[in-house]
Design a protein around this nucleic acid. Structure first.
Length: 483
RNA sequence: GGGUUGGUAGCUCAAUGGUAGAGCAGCGGCCUUUUAAGCCGUUGGUUGCGAGUUCGAGCCUCGCCCAACCCA
């Protein structure tokens, strides 16, 4: 990237030439009277405007020329005439490059072909671009450049910009929805002495002044529950989690979670919350409850119908649908054999519940395209939830699956400190995982019964925005640093 | 970690083991309502990096780097 080529040399020469004429093409300030879109919407012949934007096209007619400038709102055509600007300014205008930032003052008019345009009376070069832009109309295809230099992607591919503007809208509506329901947004530490709330490998860092190691958080859960103890009855946090694991189409080492906790709620109230939230997001941002995913040719490959009410089915019943009504009556050895026969890969060391979970993850979850609340998971899977009164093997939880992925787990949260300690100690097992004693002490002070949810915001955005890779909903996805 | 595919001009892509090309962009010229403007001319390459085979390698072989996809 520190390379050079003739195109860059030419632009540097133009910069030098401007400086020789006493022009500084990097201005401190220029105040547009309005955006390009506002100018277009408030068009009247002869109205004077002052606009700014990046030059995205250049059509030279000899003694006059057109350029397109673009700001975030849209595009505006600028018309420059030699006898309107004067000989030397016109010569300078003529040598502007694609991607330069231009400020222009002029009057609005409509061309013969009916396009609203600005006839330039004067102009200012706001920022000279010293490198050529990637493409005029092809767009930028190279995934490596798109991800490493996202700004070029955003300039070249309007649909990419649209995705990220919608992601921003999703986050905004998410906050609005929760605040409207009485939830308070909080911020809790990303650096934790003991990373808890999930089973994942953490990133480690070191604090010099304190002389100790910290871990980047792998979940938001435990600090938020402390706030329930502290009397904040409805809290949520939207923040980054960090997991030191593999990268894939669905995994980025840092990813965004929403977690929300409601005192006096349970897993059922949280199902209502998830359903209401996701429907609100789809309606307010996309204006529809039916999401279509398309391939690169534009063919619809998948349709997700978010219309409520969403299906609710217990984990066991769902497993029986795929693995046989007698699945839970088989012996563990029979289950292992049948799971392999069905096509799930079963590790040597898998415990019995993991065999069933492998069937769920490999054979069932990918088929759950329309929203499905899978309730009552086996208790071994989830140590932070309350046991179900109906089935002591299960916990009062749901996993909301949409688009073949887990999007949102929700629990009736465990608030019995004795029970919680046993479950965590059992989970820690031989791994010598440290218990978060302060969390357990907090529970001993008393936590109200509560429901909680977590939503993987990136995966939610993938589902809502029709993107097949997490890298296409994260502005700066993690790549190996280029040497 | 394993497999597959790919990396050629600023961008998008070509090129039987035999002189590295096109379109666009760029540069120069003509053109005062164009819009993928048009017309004429023209510059631009360490073919990801490094070895090897060969009279000759973008192409074949080996190693490495980066990316995408699939698998673990």
């Amino acid at each position: 990237m520190d390379d050079t080529n003739s195109l860059i040399e030419q632009r540097r020469a133009k910069l030098a030439s401007l400086r020789e004429r006493g022009i500084d093409p990097f201005r401190n300030k220029f105040t547009p009277s309005e955006s390009c879109l506002e100018a277009r919407e408030n068009y009247s012949e002869g109205r004077e405007v002052q606009l700014a934007g990046r030059i995205t096209a250049h059509r030279d007619m000899g003694k006059s020329l057109f350029v397109d400038i673009r700001d975030q709102s849209g595009r505006m055509q600028v018309y420059a005439q030699k006898n309107a600007l004067g000989e030397e300014p016109f010569e300078i205008f003529k040598h502007l490059d694609l991607a330069d930032f231009l400020g222009v003052k002029g009057t609005m008019f409509t061309t013969k072909t009916g396009e609203i345009s600005v006839k330039a009376e004067s102009f200012v070069i706001l920022a000279k671009s010293l490198r050529p832009p990637p493409a005029k109309w092809h767009g930028l295809e190279d995934t490596e450049i798109r991800y490493r230099q996202r700004y070029l992607d955003l300039i070249s591919n309007p649909e990419v910009k649209e995705v990220f503007l919608k992601r921003s809208a999703i986050l905004r509506e998410m906050r609005g929805f929760l605040e409207h329901r009485g939830y308070t947004e909080v911020e809790t530490p990303m650096m934790q002495a003991i990373p808890g709330g999930a089973a994942a490998r953490p990133f480690k860092t070191h604090h010099n002044a304190l002389g100790c190691d910290f871990y980047l958080r792998i979940a938001l859960e435990l600090p938020l529950k402390r706030l329930l103890v502290g009397g904040l009855d409805r809290v949520f946090e939207i923040g980054r989690n960090f997991r030191n694991e593999g990268l894939s189409r669905r995994h980025n080492p840092e990813f965004t979670m929403l977690e929300a906790y409601q005192a006096y709620g349970d897993y059922e109230s949280m199902m209502e919350l998830v359903q209401g939230l996701v429907c609100h997001l789809a309606e307010s941002v996309l204006d529809t409850l039916v999401i279509e995913h398309k391939d690169t040719e534009g063919n619809v490959v998948r349709t997700i119908d978010l219309n409520p009410p969403w299906r609710r089915v217990t984990y066991k019943n769902l497993v029986r649908e795929t693995a046989g009504a007698d699945w839970f009556e088989l012996t563990p050895a029979q289950r292992r054999e049948k799971a392999s026969a069905l096509g799930a890969e079963i590790g040597e060391a898998y415990e019995d519940f993991e065999v069933t979970q492998a069937v769920f993850e490999k054979l069932i979850e990918p088929t759950l395209i329309n929203p499905t609340f899978v309730t009552h998971a086996p208790k071994q899977l989830i140590p932070l939830a309350k046991l179900s009164p109906d089935d002591p093997d299960c916990v009062e939880v749901f996993e909301c699956c949409i688009n073949g992925q887990e999007i949102a787990p929700g629990y009736t949260e465990q608030n019995d400190p004795i029970e919680q300690r046993e479950r965590l100690e059992h989970q820690a097992g031989g791994e010598q995982q440290k218990l978060d004693e302060d969390f357990l002490i907090a529970l001993e002070h008393g936590m109200p019964p509560a429901g909680g949810i977590g939503i993987g915001v990136d995966r939610l955005c993938m589902m809502l925005l029709g993107q097949e890779s997490i890298r296409d909903v994260v502005l700066f996805p993690q790549l190996r640093p280029k040497t």
